[in-house]
């Protein structure tokens, strides 16, 4: 019986070894060498890691990345929750709303970047025209770093808030009507119904939404790459853009590998922290 389980896992483990285990080992191995094309790799231990942590551009992209993820969570989670509450629970509009919400999620990520580039470019976009009309004629996402930053944030809000809405909406649908009826009989206000009935029941959906949005916003690559290319200057160079520059374009593959490992463990560490904090906070208040 016990051996049978491993036979069943064999195909999955075979695929995962090719796509996860061996690559991860390779990258850990590389990270301890100085690897330049054309010469034999040289073992240098932890030196690459020290170099990465001392690299100002790395630290800047890391700081930018953390700020980006915080902003994304602060905007998308409340917005998604609010809109999920506002969506009708049944009726003919539900189906269409869901289809509409699903569309941004299925557009290839770099096409999302292209859509937003076409939408916001100063020579052919609608956004500069609108800004011009309301009196902010200076908008230019390829010259002003502030504009570029908020354009990338707006793009991500556009792209991923539907996911938060869908998660919350599905969670809301799963709350039995009786809970609301009971709250009404007890004379609960709209706010306390939300606070003591809806919110605790949505806990799992919200935790999942925060975790998914954190992990994916921390990994974001194709959309800003296509929209701004990381510029102007380095103002929208997020961690993935920096990493892939070092991994593909950089000369020292060992350095790129060290960046990759630090990056991977940061994602796991912060996800774990977020998960633990939310489990404790939510668990305390729903009692």
């Amino acid at each position: 019986m016990k051996n049978r389980a491993w036979w069943f896992l064999l195909p999955a483990l075979a695929v995962m070894s090719l796509s996860a285990f061996i690559p991860l080992m390779t990258v850990i191995n590389y990270a301890q060498y100085s690897v330049f094309p054309g010469s034999a790799p040289q073992f240098i231990g932890m030196e690459n890691f020290a170099d990465v942590l001392g690299d100002g551009v790395f630290l800047d992209s890391l700081r930018r990345q953390v700020l980006f993820s915080i902003e994304i969570l602060l905007i998308e989670i409340p917005l998604g929750l609010g809109l999920a509450l506002a969506l009708p629970k049944k009726g003919k509009w539900v189906g269409w709303s869901l289809v509409l919400l699903g569309i941004p999620l299925l557009i290839p990520w770099n096409v999302v970047g292209i859509i937003w580039r076409v939408f916001t470019r100063s020579d052919l976009g609608a956004v500069p025209a609108i800004f011009n009309w309301i009196g902010y004629g200076a908008y230019n996402a390829s010259l002003n770093s502030g504009d570029a930053w908020w354009t990338v944030v707006a793009m991500d809000v556009w792209h991923w808030t539907p996911l938060v809405i869908l998660l919350c909406y599905a969670g809301l649908q799963a709350i039995p009507e009786e809970f609301y009826r009971a709250a009404k009989i007890d004379g609960a206000s709209a706010w306390s119904t939300f606070r003591y009935v809806t919110l605790p029941k949505l806990r799992h959906s919200l935790i999942l939404a925060v975790l998914l949005r954190f992990m994916d916003s921390f990994k974001i690559y194709a959309e800003p790459f296509q929209l701004t290319g990381g510029g102007p200057g380095n103002s929208t160079t997020l961690l993935s853009i920096y990493t892939s520059r070092k991994a593909i374009g950089g000369f020292n593959m060992g350095f790129g590998a060290a960046v990759s490992i630090i990056y991977f463990f940061l994602v796991i560490l912060i996800s774990w922290l977020l998960y633990t904090i939310m489990m404790n906070v939510g668990g305390g208040s729903s009692k």
Binding site: T26, M215, F218, T243, A247, I261, F264, V267
Partner: peptide, 10 residues
Amino acid sequence: MAPTAAFIVP
């Protein structure tokens, strides 16, 4: 959770 960019070299 793996960041895609971390896997392109290997």
